[in-house]
Nucleic acid binder design. Structure first.
Lengths: 213, 213
DNA sequence: CTAATATTGTGAAGATTTTCACAAGGCTGT
DNA sequence: ACAGCCTTGTGAAAATCTTCACAATATTAG
């Protein structure tokens, strides 16, 4: 692949959404799909769908549309889902628990290979097949296990001390659930999952309605 | 307030982030802050910070910066956080549990006034001060309780049937944790919290690094 | 084989968002 | 009161993203 152009955040999110739609279509047994239909199931336009896909190649057939299975394979490849990623969960609290037991990881391309917490009352517990380890072991274990991605599900207060270990271990990406902007060296990719921000965007939108009448 | 201009999604997200930063600064006892310092703590530029704020008014003093406490008050007002919002949680599973017990809601502007599930084995359980109710009671209870916002923490399969109740009740906003695009009438504002999408954006970014060398 | 129809891929136009750069203030020290 | 310094607020420029519109091309029907 190795496309050199810069792809926007929003385009990547849409690709992810397209993949979800294609998976639905596969399940429904549909063989081909037009950009028009894709746009109907997402919240974009047909032109946007075509433009997004054309950033990576010509996957469709004029007059016919896209082959559902083929496009799904290509999107998985584009999104880096044609391999497994080794993931460590840091934070064995409720969110961490919800994530691990939800289990969507395995079905997708992510293998949770280690779980950490700094709360000694949690260390040692068994979660799924894994023992919760003390965060102080992070660097060693992350290296042994080849951890590339960290899911950070800890409270804001714990972020600075935990991040020391994470930075030292040379992890490549972090999925951050803590409602704070992480300070990381430029090497590490960070994505935030931030409920507070979305809730506030919601109350903003509703307030605007009220105000603008 | 009642600004008529359209404010971009990304600008709103940044406002929410600025508010978080201001809350940190207040806690640290800092009285004023420059756009420069704000940009250092977020991931933007000073010009961006000033531009974002200027969409709503002139809140700073030239040569001095912004008054931390005052700006926080103004941002809360802009984001609609100067009132309480009545929220219903739909889905008494692990994510719902994590959300409710996390408790950040009350400290912010949201009151969880009802909890619903369609799983009869969960109905009747006590969560915090609330009894989990059957989703079939949604319309009645939502009206009685004046629910404006729904937090949807249910699996994808359950979305269609649950959404019938939610739509009927005339809720104004939905915070959606299910990894699917909700189909709603234009009246209802929807924000998504989507871990899968962020994880895939992460593996995309890491793959790009690998590919581009 | 030709005509009719469908749908992609993509330059160009249009819209939006971000960055630049600087005049206008406002504070501090003398 | 004045000089020197700092920082905002904001038009204008630059960059980015989305939409438009249509030529290119594949399929189907006759």
């Amino acid at each position: 692949m190795a496309i050199s152009r810069k792809i926007s955040e929003s385009a990547v999110r849409r690709l992810s959404l397209y993949l979800r739609i294609l998976e639905d279509l596969e399940r429904e047994g549909q063989k081909t799909v037009s950009s028009e239909e894709m746009s109907g199931r997402s919240a974009t336009t047909a032109a946007q769908v075509r433009k997004d896909l054309s950033l990576f190649g010509s996957f469709g057939k004029r007059g016919l549309g896209y082959d559902v299975a083929d496009l799904a394979v290509r999107l998985r490849k584009i999104l880096g889902l044609d391999r497994r990623w080794r993931v460590a969960l840091v934070g064995a609290g409720r969110i961490g628990s919800a994530l691990v037991e939800y289990g969507g990881f395995g079905e997708r391309s992510y293998d949770v290979v280690a779980i950490f917490d700094s709360d000694t009352s949690k260390v040692g517990a068994r979660w799924g097949g894994l023992r919760v380890r003390d965060i102080s072991e992070f660097v060693t274990v992350a290296n042994d296990e080849g951890v590339e991605i960290v899911i950070l599900a800890i409270p804001v207060e714990a972020v600075p001390s935990v991040m020391e270990h994470v930075e030292e271990a040379g992890v490549r990406g972090i999925l951050n659930f803590a409602p704070t902007k992480l300070k990381v060296s430029g090497e590490v990719a960070v994505k935030d999952v931030n409920m507070v921000m979305e809730l506030e965007a919601l109350s903003f939108a509703l307030s605007q309605e009220d105000g603008a009448g």
